[in-house]
Design a protein around this nucleic acid. Structure first.
Length: 268
DNA sequence: CGCTAGTCCTGTCTGC
DNA sequence: TGCAGACAGGACTAGC
């Protein structure tokens, strides 16, 4: 499940080899296109100049002002392959044929993800919350976000319109690092706890990027390599295993329809 | 407006 | 061995 660190890793992989010229965008499934502001033909002969990321979205900027925006959903993969490699895996929905004998493939079994062909990305991203690794994401911002909210803190961390890029894995990890139970009422957090949570969010994301993301099953980076942060997770997916802090078996519960992992003793 | 539950989707796992 | 059902969840939407 590609969250911020996974998309950041893919972005870094692609940025290394840009610019690349587009020969043709081959759309193998129409319904993977979520929005189309321009014709596919307009991409032919143009150059992908820059890869960037906003929240969990990966953005490819084309030299004539067009954008390709991918969201990988649950099972999406975006990776580079050599053009002469003709082995076609199942669920490859988009193939972007490039120069330098390369192609960029979008593969997504569950199809929760998609591709947006946009001319204006500012309005597209205007609803997204602040980037958790930016300077403007700070305790006062988090405090403002939590103010008056009755829902569980975990639900707010997953709301992309408030904080962009956190998913189920890193929300659980950040709450563990901050010593806060995922079902705590958001508005009940003290200033000190908010500071700890802000710090925990930044720390877990930074560390995961360093390990090139978390591969539970589906995730692969832009070179089709799995990440390594799954070996450093403290609570996510570790139900009934020992808490790395106190040794007590970790708990699992459901919050907002999502599985949530925490330590009863270390989180309050 | 805030929040919950349902929806989309398919590979993988569990139980009979 | 095979099949049915549960489960995973990001983002959106309907409804209370």
């Amino acid at each position: 499940m590609p969250e911020l660190p996974e998309v950041e890793t893919i972005k870094n992989n692609l940025q290394e080899i840009l610019p690349l010229r587009i020969k043709e965008l081959e759309l193998r499934r129409e319904d993977i296109l979520r929005c189309q502001d321009y014709a596919l033909k307009e991409l032919a002969g143009q150059s992908i100049e820059e890869a960037s990321r906003r929240g969990k979205y990966l953005i490819l900027a084309v030299n004539n002002g067009l954008f390709l925006v991918f969201h990988l959903g649950m099972s999406g993969r975006l990776y580079i392959q050599e053009e002469e490699n003709t082995i076609l895996e199942p669920h490859v929905h988009v193939i972007i044929h490039l120069d330098k004998r390369l192609k960029l493939l979008y593969q997504d079994a569950r199809r929760f993800g998609g591709l947006w062909l946009l001319k204006d990305i500012d309005s597209f991203f205007s609803r997204l919350g602040k980037e958790p690794l930016s300077e403007e994401f700070c305790p006062p911002y988090l405090e403002q976000v939590l103010q008056g909210r009755q829902t569980a803190i975990k639900n707010l961390l997953l709301n992309q319109n408030l904080i962009s890029g956190l998913g189920n894995i890193y929300a659980d990890e950040a709450l563990f690092m901050a010593g806060i139970r995922p079902d705590r009422q958001a508005a009940s957090l003290s200033v000190r706890e908010i500071e700890g949570l802000c710090c925990g969010i930044k720390e877990v994301l930074t560390k995961s990027i360093k390990y090139r993301g978390t591969t539970f099953r589906d995730y692969r980076d832009g070179k089709r390599q799995p990440g390594e942060f799954q070996n450093h997770l403290q609570v996510y997916g570790r139900f009934n295993q020992a808490c790395p802090n106190c040794g007590q078996p970790l708990k699992r519960t459901r919050i907002g329809g999502r599985s949530s992992h925490y330590c009863e003793k270390c989180q309050h």
